[in-house]
Amino acid sequence: MQIKDLFTKKKYATIPSEPRKRDIPEGLMNKCSKCGTIQYSKELEKNLKVCSSCGHHFRLTAWERIGITLDEGHLLEYDADMESVDPLAFPGYASKLEQQKSKSGLREAVVTGEGTIGGFPVVAAVMSFDFFTGSMGSVVGEKITRAIEAAHAKRLPLLIFSTSGGARMQESILSLMQMAKTSAALSKFQGDGGLFISVFTDPTTGGVSASFASLGDYNLAEPGALIGFAGRIVIEQTIRQKLPDDFQTAEFNLQHGQLDKVVHRKDMKATLTKLLDMHVAREGTSYGG
């Protein structure tokens, strides 16, 4: 190369090319939907699916939740076979149910059963948003009610992790009545001294938020979880105002007196254990671990 060549501008031809595909195998990496940080899925899992950068709590499926909450991840499941029918013959419902089953690997939007937490026996109901947005139809209502009744009969504490888009409109009035059914069961259980710990996870809205989920003796929530009755868009259209960004978050609800405590996922099991420990049966009390 000659010296003068250094001062001439080289001309490059641009060749249109496909953007380079990342050759990362599917599922190896995960992008945080909140802050965009990309992290190894394995790391994320080790972190209980909480973003290491911004602390965003990813949604968990029912079995993931059971895995990190119950001792040895073990749940003795109740009513595992119970399935939805199509009582209204609602257009598209039957096929949507099938699609949700194969997508999520679940039969319905809640898993119920019993196990132990920190050695304390509990009856647990864990909802899964990945089945039909966690919506409550007859099966969810029935399984939750049976779980409450089982806790009552066995005199065990009841723990419910909620996540739901609300009532399942494909079962319309029957869905709505599940709100009354579950709340009535809680009336009996709690009225008889039963302990109910409710944990809101992202998101818990509509008919679930307006029934059993709000009725805990202790109401906890994961950070950032969306908790509310009406949807943001409906509210904005009704009051013709833009709502603040933190509207209906767990922190917003805590600030407005709707929650006892917001608990980080890594502290959840310890917090639950501590709470259960406070309720160990003593002389003269009928309930406890």
């Binding site: 709100m179 009354a180 709340s183 009535a184 809680l186 009336s187 709690q190 938020s209 307006a210 029934s211 059993f212 989920a213 709000s214 009725l215 908790i227 509310g228 009755f229 009406a230 509210i235 509207f247 209906q248 407005h256 007196g257 709707q258």
Partner: peptide, 14 residues
Amino acid sequence: EERGQSEAIARNLR
């Protein structure tokens, strides 16, 4: 929502 719409409904049911 700030005053607990969900809780108010749920409590009435129970």
